[in-house]
Computed example of a mutant assay.
Amino acid sequence: MTVPLTAVTAAEYADQLKSLDNTLRNIETVLNLDKMRKDKAELEAVAATPDLWDDQARAQQITSKLSYVQGELNRIERLRGRLDDAGVLLELAESENDPSSLAEVGNEIGALTKAIDELEIRTLLSGEYDSREALVSIRSGAGGVDAADFAEMLLRMYLRWAERHGYSADVYDTSYAEEAGIKSATFAVKHPYAYGTLSVEGGTHRLVRISPFDNQGRRQTSFAAVEVVPVVEQTDDIEIPEDDLRVDVYRSSGPGGQGVNTTDSAVRITHLPTGIVVSCQNERSQLQNKATAMGVLKAKLLALKRAEEQAKMDAIRGDVAGSWGDQMRSYVLHPYQMVKDLRTEYETGNPSAVFDGEIDSFIEAGIRWRKQRELEAH
């Protein structure tokens, strides 16, 4: 015997679909679909030019932007289609008094809510540099060999996150610790909006666990710092006098296969006025390594300039709070299992999944938290 559909259930689903429709319309307005379609057409025209690959760096930038715009448009159009289909299915379920179709609508509403929430995050990335690619640096902090091991765990976590999303990630430099792990590493995530997305990951990360390096099995707390800066573009005004630089070349160290360790191709650049040191050893050519290291240095100097400007604005506003990124997340493996963001209060009881790159929920919570802070500050 068929159970009659309750008017309340069908009406509730209709209200939920209407709410999702309004949210998606707002997203479409903020993201400006007409402009995205125009950008797509322009990028396709540039990508079709015969001499595109004469400049490989520019070609990669063009194709990356085109892939991103195409993906975003497809994502929005698919969601719009699914939302319309759910409305049709709801009407069908009501007209035919079909509980199974109504249940299907309920399941689709749950999936659409999650997908539209994720898309809404993109509308919150409206900062000056948010649309850029990201340069991420990880440094081990207090905690000895455990901290170095933790820094390597974080490096793998972010590279796995990039891999899960299909984003290109290039490790420019890795300084290996003596016993285990790394002292530091710098890598680039080459995807539009990588900076806006990952910028909420900057700050101090803390690990609590039974140390695998302590023969007495004691609990150890260790720290690692994550820094995220936007990749510099040609339009940025970053001039560096040659006299401000000290350039050292050396032989690449650590795992790297044959070839990479046979010549003095690695480059270390020190910016004398600030003391900032950057290195690159992932290319075989010294010239390539120097060009990459200069790009990293410019990105760090741009970030420093922005921080100084922000500090002036904070002083004018009377904001004396410390950096929001400090002490931002704890990873606890003993005596219980939990990863908790200390800013957003978001937490999970599955550290293994987090270290395997499942950090989207933390990132999304961080972006929403940051946006709320910005609104409150103004």
Rank of each mutant, 00 (worst) to 15 (best):
A377T: 06
S126W: 09
N74T: 15
K298P: 08
A169F: 08
L90Q: 09
K290C: 11
Y167M: 10
A224S: 04
Y331N: 01
R37T: 04
V226N: 01
A185M: 10
W324K: 04
Y193T: 00
R370F: 04
A188P: 00
A10P: 07
L342I: 06
R317G: 06
G259S: 10
V229N: 05
A45E: 13
E42P: 11
A45W: 10
D55E: 10
P212M: 03
K38F: 15
L5E: 03
G127Q: 04
R78P: 02
V320Y: 14
L245V: 15
D130F: 00
D173S: 14
Y13S: 12
D236R: 08
V320F: 08
E120D: 15
K305Q: 14
V8Y: 06
T204I: 00
A147H: 00
G275F: 07
D146P: 03
G141A: 02
N32R: 13
T348M: 01
T348S: 08
E94C: 15
T348L: 05
R306C: 12
S352I: 15
A188M: 06
V208Y: 03
D98C: 05
P212T: 07
Q327N: 13
V171L: 11
N32V: 15
S95I: 13
D356H: 06
A307N: 14
K18L: 09
G127L: 03
M294F: 08
A194W: 00
D117T: 11
A307Y: 06
E72D: 05
L302V: 12
A180M: 13
D314I: 03
R75N: 13
